[in-house]
Design a protein around this nucleic acid. Sequence first.
DNA 1: ACACTAGTTTATCAGATGATAAATAAAACT
DNA 2: AGTTTTATTTATCATCTGATAAACTAGTGT
Lengths: 214, 214
Amino acid sequence: MTVRKTDTKLPKKRLRPENREQQILDEAVSFFAEKGISGKTRELADRLGITQPLLYRYFPTKRDLIEGVFEKVYLNKLNPEWLKTITDRDRTLQDRLCEFYRSYSAATYRYDWIRVYMFSALMGEEMNRRYTKLIEKEILTPICVELREHCGLPSKKRVSQAELDHIWVLHGGLFYFAIRKHIYHGRVSKNFSVVVERAVNAMLEGTKSISADP
Amino acid sequence: MTVRKTDTKLPKKRLRPENREQQILDEAVSFFAEKGISGKTRELADRLGITQPLLYRYFPTKRDLIEGVFEKVYLNKLNPEWLKTITDRDRTLQDRLCEFYRSYSAATYRYDWIRVYMFSALMGEEMNRRYTKLIEKEILTPICVELREHCGLPSKKRVSQAELDHIWVLHGGLFYFAIRKHIYHGRVSKNFSVVVERAVNAMLEGTKSISADP
DNA sequence: ACACTAGTTTATCAGATGATAAATAAAACT
DNA sequence: AGTTTTATTTATCATCTGATAAACTAGTGT
């Protein structure tokens, strides 16, 4: 069977190194997000419309490419605005947390991000643990402090593991929405904001309520 | 360098097919949970102290072995007692949910289970989607019904996606505890029961509270 | 127009890996 | 004990896959 060359194939344009590297990295993120880290370099090259050895001009080993993908996904994902939002006591905590999760989810609850994140976590990548610790320190601990204030509790002692775990249930519960969507491919509400509002509202009211009596 | 045969090597006992198959399957679960689905058959055989071709006597292909692992992990994981616990209106909902999560977490929040579950999900395995739907139907929907009762709301209409998503935040939030522990290898509280109690209590109180005013 | 530079392809390797066939030996049977 | 059966190993294959080297050619400068 003869192959008809009727497809609109662009006359193989050459790219400048920096552009080609970016192009490869972009496609690699979406490729490995879909296929997992054991995705084959030849298949990635096919998607890019280039030959497999060309990858090795820009990334000496597959591991280097994967690391590029990880970096691209993990890097600069902590927006300094978030801490400001969370600690802005001129607004209600409900309001602040909803805005934070609106912004945070827009940044991270994406197909590529969620999946690469989970693949790297399963691989035991150091980068993942570092990120989780950073979230605890820069986001969850401040939320715990604000939560104390919201519940009318004193805030002298260090935020405990129990307090962190309590807020992790909300944080992880909302993250799990993205897992259900992008990893389980299950049915989820279209409007995530509504889910956030309800969950945050219930958590705040509930936590205040149970902090009162014992 | 000569190898000293000083190791206490048992004189290669033969197993009956059913025993050997079970032994392989048991080790395969823990092996693939750790290494992921791209774990090599030779390495698995090494762990078992057998040769790699022997695996193929019991499982014609690697895929068959993996499917055995999936089945072993997914099968019979839905305890009929759970539904009874959840719907037993002689007890407080707080009490019922805490007991359910105690039992549910003991059954599923295990290193092997959580990881194989996540690997299979990332592979887009049908088994995973089926399981998730089953959880929604047999566990989460009943909880939503009980939650309506708990909040003094009427329960005529069908449980909505919004209601499911709300309870998914709790369910996923608690599941996320296991993800943090077994996938992220992060620091978590020793006593999961305490986390459950607090989260369930806050959710129930909070949801009742926000169901009252609007 | 010619030569040079460097981005890209072609050809190929070496090791890994899933899988198979034949040889071996432990257990079971007579 | 001798024979048969079959669990297990040894040897090996075909293919895949990450990686390398050399050939090729589009673009650039003179």
